[in-house]
């Protein structure tokens, strides 16, 4: 499956130009919550029928979750259930999930999107309230426990939300409008503190 293409897009050891992620280093704090842009990561959008899940899980080293709104995490690599045949795989350990999937012959589509998304951490006791300033989902621990993951809405932008701890979330969004998302979360944080 798609080996040829995947091989060629594998990351390069020493690029002669530097990576300039959007919003690099941005952060803001309010009482009870800190909003901060996370470092770059490797990511793929993984699509596959159920039958391929086992082989892909094995290759990725993290079990692809089968339950809606859940995620699985292992060794710096997190797989988020986004849809019945769709996962967002985020690698924060510097390894390339695209290359791992390229070895799998079972039916699937793996597409590199490392640069498509950026991640923003929202952490602190008021994190939930900050995100609820524009996200209509129930983010109580009962409805959205640690490890819960979901694509959803923040204001007028689409985000992917992952709860990493009782008081911490990872917000992923596309890079072009990440300033909107960051600014929205900052306003939400300011109000959540008030």
């Amino acid at each position: 499956m798609a080996k040829a293409a995947a091989k060629k897009t594998a990351p390069v050891a020493s690029p002669s130009v530097e990576r300039r992620p959007a919003l690099a280093g941005r952060s803001t704090s309010a009482t009870g919550v800190k909003v901060e842009v996370l470092p770059p990561a490797e990511r793929i959008s993984l699509r596959a029928p159920e039958a391929s899940a086992a082989a892909l899980s094995k290759a990725l080293g993290v079990p692809l979750p089968k339950k809606p709104k859940t995620s699985a995490s292992k060794a710096g690599r997190t797989a988020l259930w986004l849809g019945p045949d769709e996962w967002l795989v985020i690698d924060e350990a510097g390894n390339d999930p695209l290359a791992d999937c390229a070895k799998v012959s079972a039916l699937h589509s793996a597409v590199g999107i490392s640069h498509r998304n950026i991640a923003i951490s929202v952490a602190g006791p008021a994190a939930e309230a900050a995100i609820n300033s524009g996200c209509p989902q129930d983010l109580s621990l009962e409805a959205f426990p640690v490890g819960a993951a979901s694509r959803t809405i923040l204001g007028k932008a689409e985000i992917v939300l992952l709860r990493t701890a009782a008081d911490a979330f990872r917000v992923e969004c596309w890079r072009s409008f990440s300033d909107y998302v960051f600014t929205f979360l900052s306003e939400g944080a300011r109000d959540a503190a008030g």
Binding site: V17, R19, H115
Partner: peptide
């Protein structure tokens, strides 16, 4: 520049032309 590209030879000008696709974080560099 040492980073992956999908290099298209195509033209929306009628001139010899290319569209260089690079991962976005490398775009400006």
């Amino acid at each position: 520049c040492g980073v992956p590209t999908r290099l298209f030879r195509m033209s929306f000008t009628g001139e010899r032309g290319f569209e260089v696709n690079v991962p976005a974080d490398y775009g400006q560099a």
